[in-house]
């Protein structure tokens, strides 16, 4: 084999090897970046879970019931005689609310 041919072969092999190593390092680099994003997502998920827990606890029958009973001892469920159905015209929710407020 001539020296020039040998050098061409070596160049191709070396280039391929360096390219492979570069791609491998890119994969690891992306993995590190993904890890950082994962930490951010985990923090957001953590906050979301804390908020969800608080919401579930606050809207639970036990909490709402106890809060209402503390503020107003005579709290009672409304019977049909306590509720008046208000008819609105045109289906406009705002006018419906105003009509209810006036009553």
């Amino acid at each position: 084999m001539k020296v020039s041919d040998f050098l061409k072969v070596m160049f191709v092999i070396t280039f391929t090897a360096v390219l492979y190593i570069h791609l491998q390092m890119s994969i690891y680099d992306l993995a590190y970046q993904g890890k950082k994003k994962e930490d951010t997502v985990e923090k957001l998920a953590e906050n979301n879970v804390m908020m969800k827990n608080d919401i579930l606890r606050l809207k639970s029958a036990d909490h709402i019931g106890r809060e209402l009973l503390e503020k107003e001892k005579d709290y009672k469920f409304a019977s049909r005689s306590n509720v008046v159905e208000v008819e609105t015209t045109g289906g406009n929710p705002i006018s419906g609310l105003l009509a209810f407020a006036k009553f």
């Binding site: 827990n53 606890r57 036990d62």
Partner: peptide, 13 residues
């Protein structure tokens, strides 16, 4: 270590 635990929003209910 992140684990999970049981949560009862209504307390004793």
């Amino acid at each position: 270590i992140k684990e999970s635990k049981r949560f009862y929003p209504n307390g004793e209910l």
